[in-house]
Amino acid sequence: MQDILFYVFAGLVLICGFLVVANPFSRSPVTSAMFLVLTIISLAGLFVLLHAFFLAAVQILVYAGAVMVLFLFVIMLLDLKVEDRRRLKVFSIVTGLGASGAILFMFMRHLLHAPLVGQSATLSEGATIPLGHLLFENYLLPFEVVSVLLLVAMVGVVLLSKKELK
């Protein structure tokens, strides 16, 4: 059952992720945003399968909820037009397919030949308490670095997008 669900969710993530950036049926930004919501919800499903219930809930609340609403607001405020269909260049198709084919080939070779060396990480129940312990003990430094990173992003956005008053 778990395996089937994994494949369902993983397949959904891949298909929806593809449709966000390269939807053959529609070039409307709103459609892309809607597929992004679907991608995020399927990712949340994968988190549930990993017993990370808190992360799954946060993923849906924050990303699918708050962030996506903002995205849609911005798209609608900017009144983006449906993009023109771009002609795909043969060169970019060939190189793109070649590179992804090569990586896929390496993956398959690895999966078929080598035994999996990575031992499965200790499965901790994804409740808030163990997560908090991880964040504020082992991973305190990365956590703080992220907070500084967000500060930089904030200052930078205000700075670069501000109109200069003369």
Binding site: L149, V152, V155, G156, L159, L160
Partner: peptide, 11 residues
């Protein structure tokens, strides 16, 4: 930290 530094340098 690579991202932190790069983000600052872009700005």
């Amino acid at each position: 930290s690579l991202e932190l530094a790069s983000m600052c340098l872009y700005i």
